[in-house]
Write a protein that binds this DNA or RNA. Structure first.
Lengths: 115, 115
DNA sequence: TTGACATTCAATCATTCGCTTGAATATGAT
DNA sequence: ATCATATTCAAGCGAATGATTGAATGTCAA
């Protein structure tokens, strides 16, 4: 596949922001949900928020630093794409406690109180 | 069942703290992990942190407000117990993106860009 | 009763957060 | 060239966060 003209990709490196923190904000979760439906320029995301354009941009920046989105420059647009593979960590972490809501177990693992 | 002497239970009501926020802090996640092995008094939790006793107490307070732990007074101890059923919400939310890390799909749902 | 222990309450403080506004940069259209 | 568009950069601000310290409360032990 040839390289598209005027196209440049910012690759994700080592995440600088903790994903738990990135996802703690409801607006950022909403952004991820919107992007899950398909990549979008910032413009199309902003309309879903009652917030300034720049504020949305800042949230996207944080998501990018957490490795949850990547962006691609296309003309004067920045097209953001969801990259939520990192959410697997969160999924797995929460999944450790599955027994608590499935079987109403009160304890996990093999530990016992020795008091 | 008769009421145990010197025992009192603080029941969880409607959570006042968002679980995503409660879990955003690494120390609080560590507390949950410790408590998953079995209920513990604050004292036994503190030793695992490089932090003042009171700071740990504050974190436990936040976890309690999020409904992720309950506490029981036993003598002069406060025994905390994990109640991480609410983590199911987080687990389910992150699970929405499962396709991203399982099949490397780049899009979820039925949405398409109509640009 | 006196004192040690376990925990919370309360005040304080530096840092971070989420947001706003205004300037800067870059691209496309005329 | 000029101007509008799309987005980021940067500075500032009030509010929330995470921690500390000291005082207060309650329980056990001598």
């Amino acid at each position: 596949m040839a390289i598209s003209l005027g196209m440049q990709v910012d690759r994700a490196s080592a995440p600088k922001v903790d994903i738990f923190h990135a996802v703690a904000d409801a607006n950022r979760r909403k952004l991820l949900d919107l992007l899950a439906a398909g990549e979008r320029p910032v413009q199309e995301l902003v309309v879903h928020f009652d917030m300034s354009f720049q504020a949305v941009s800042q949230h996207l920046h944080i998501l990018a630093e957490a490795g949850l989105v990547t962006r691609r420059k296309q003309g004067r647009y920045r097209i953001y794409r969801a990259q939520p593979a990192a959410l697997r960590d969160i999924h797995d972490w929460a999944g450790q406690y599955r027994a608590f809501w499935e079987n109403r177990l009160e304890r996990l693992g093999g530990y016992l109180d020795e008091t």
